[in-house]
Lab assay of single mutants.
Amino acid sequence: MDVFMKGLSKAKEGVVAAAEKTKQGVAEAAGKTKEGVLYVGSKTKEGVVHGVATVAEKTKEQVTNVGGAVVTGVTAVAQKTVEGAGSIAAATGFVKKDQLGKNEEGAPQEGILEDMPVDPDNEAYEMPSEEGYQDYEPEA
């Protein structure tokens, strides 16, 4: 019985440690998101679009440190934060509304985080759909 109880105690310690790591990862992701939003706020009209992409990228980098179902929630929060940063930029006159959601080359930025393969159960990952990809044929 002692062996059984000791095993359960060790398992509990492992769960607590994993929860603490997840909590730490979420806190880091939130900190990076805040950094990115402050970065966007300090940019001029020309830099705002690039700044919004930076927020998304920093958040995406930190999301990889967070495991399990938390990833889905962090990704949703990050996307809403990026959308909010863009709205703030438009409201303050840093950028025109028609410039939001495009990178410096004018290509749409939507789907940055949505296409990231995420499995809350950590069982399997699927690649994003290939609808947006084109076949590449090298020139002879």
Rank of each mutant, 00 (worst) to 15 (best):
M1I: 00
M1A: 00
M1N: 00
M1Q: 00
D2S: 02
F4W: 04
F4A: 00
F4E: 00
F4I: 08
M5W: 05
M5T: 01
M5N: 02
K6V: 02
K6Y: 02
G7F: 05
G7R: 15
L8H: 00
L8K: 00
L8R: 00
S9D: 03
S9G: 14
S9F: 15
K10C: 02
K10G: 01
K10Q: 04
K10T: 05
K10A: 08
A11H: 00
K12N: 01
K12V: 12
E13H: 03
E13C: 08
E13R: 09
E13W: 04
E13L: 02
E13T: 07
E13A: 14
G14W: 05
G14Q: 15
G14A: 15
G14R: 11
G14T: 15
V15R: 00
V15L: 11
V15A: 03
V16Y: 15
V16S: 07
V16L: 10
V16T: 07
A17S: 06
A19W: 15
A19G: 02
A19E: 00
E20I: 13
E20V: 03
E20G: 02
K21A: 11
K21I: 12
K21S: 09
T22A: 14
T22F: 09
K23A: 04
K23F: 15
K23Y: 08
Q24G: 03
Q24S: 07
G25Y: 15
G25A: 15
G25K: 15
G25T: 15
G25C: 08
G25F: 15
A27L: 11
E28W: 05
E28T: 09
A29G: 02
A29W: 14
A29F: 15
A29E: 00
A29L: 07
A30Y: 15
A30Q: 01
A30C: 07
A30F: 15
G31N: 12
G31W: 14
G31P: 00
G31R: 09
K32G: 01
K32S: 02
T33H: 01
T33A: 05
T33I: 03
K34T: 02
K34G: 02
E35D: 11
E35Q: 05
G36H: 14
G36A: 11
V37F: 07
L38T: 04
L38S: 03
L38V: 08
Y39I: 10
Y39R: 09
V40H: 02
V40L: 14
V40W: 02
V40S: 00
G41W: 08
G41A: 09
G41P: 00
G41Q: 06
G41F: 12
G41N: 03
S42I: 13
S42Y: 13
S42D: 03
K43N: 02
K43Q: 03
K43Y: 14
K43V: 13
K43F: 13
T44A: 07
T44S: 13
K45C: 10
K45L: 13
K45S: 07
E46S: 13
E46N: 14
E46P: 02
E46Y: 06
E46W: 04
G47D: 07
G47K: 06
G47C: 06
G47E: 04
V48E: 00
V48H: 00
V48R: 01
V48M: 15
V48D: 00
V48P: 00
V48T: 02
V49R: 09
V49N: 02
V49H: 14
V49E: 03
H50N: 09
H50T: 08
H50C: 10
V52M: 13
V52I: 04
A53M: 13
A53G: 06
T54L: 15
V55S: 01
V55E: 00
A56D: 00
A56N: 02
A56C: 14
A56M: 13
A56K: 09
E57F: 09
K58Q: 05
K58R: 12
K58S: 06
K58A: 13
T59Q: 01
T59Y: 15
K60T: 04
K60D: 01
E61Q: 08
E61L: 07
Q62L: 08
Q62M: 07
Q62V: 04
V63K: 01
V63W: 15
V63S: 02
V63P: 01
V63Y: 11
V63G: 02
T64L: 12
T64P: 02
N65V: 11
N65D: 05
N65F: 12
V66Q: 01
G67P: 02
G67A: 10
G67N: 04
G67S: 07
G67F: 11
G68A: 10
A69W: 11
A69N: 05
V71L: 10
V71Y: 04
V71G: 02
T72N: 14
T72M: 15
G73Q: 13
G73T: 14
G73D: 02
G73E: 03
V74C: 11
A76G: 06
A76D: 03
A76P: 01
A76E: 05
V77H: 01
V77E: 02
V77A: 07
V77R: 03
A78P: 02
A78N: 01
A78K: 05
Q79F: 05
Q79H: 07
Q79D: 03
K80P: 02
V82T: 06
V82S: 04
V82H: 04
E83N: 08
E83F: 09
E83T: 08
E83M: 11
E83C: 05
E83Q: 10
E83V: 11
G84A: 14
G84H: 06
G84Q: 09
G84T: 15
A85G: 06
A85Q: 02
G86H: 11
S87G: 14
S87N: 12
S87T: 09
S87V: 13
I88H: 02
A89Y: 10
A89E: 03
A90T: 14
A90C: 15
A90D: 08
A91S: 04
A91Q: 09
A91F: 11
T92C: 14
T92W: 15
T92M: 05
T92S: 10
G93C: 03
G93A: 10
G93F: 02
F94G: 04
F94M: 02
F94N: 04
V95N: 10
K96A: 11
K96W: 15
K96Q: 07
K97C: 12
K97E: 05
D98N: 08
Q99K: 02
Q99S: 13
L100G: 07
L100H: 03
N103R: 08
N103F: 10
E104D: 14
E104M: 14
E104G: 09
E105R: 13
G106R: 06
G106I: 12
A107L: 12
P108Q: 10
P108L: 08
Q109I: 11
Q109F: 10
E110S: 06
G111K: 12
I112Y: 05
L113Q: 13
L113K: 10
L113A: 12
E114Q: 06
E114F: 12
D115A: 12
D115F: 11
P117K: 08
V118D: 12
V118R: 12
V118C: 11
D119W: 03
D119V: 07
P120D: 05
P120W: 05
P120M: 08
D121W: 05
D121T: 09
E123Y: 11
E123G: 08
E123I: 10
E123D: 12
A124H: 07
A124L: 05
A124P: 06
Y125D: 09
Y125V: 13
Y125H: 14
E126Q: 03
E126N: 11
E126L: 06
E126H: 11
M127A: 03
M127Y: 12
P128I: 12
P128M: 14
S129E: 10
S129H: 06
S129G: 08
S129R: 04
S129W: 04
S129A: 05
E130W: 10
E130Y: 07
E131A: 13
E131P: 10
G132I: 09
Y133G: 12
Y133W: 06
Q134S: 09
Q134N: 12
Q134W: 08
Q134I: 08
D135F: 07
D135I: 10
D135C: 06
D135P: 04
Y136G: 06
Y136S: 14
Y136R: 06
E137R: 08
E137N: 04
E137Q: 06
P138F: 07
E139G: 07
E139P: 05
A140H: 06
A140N: 13
A140R: 11
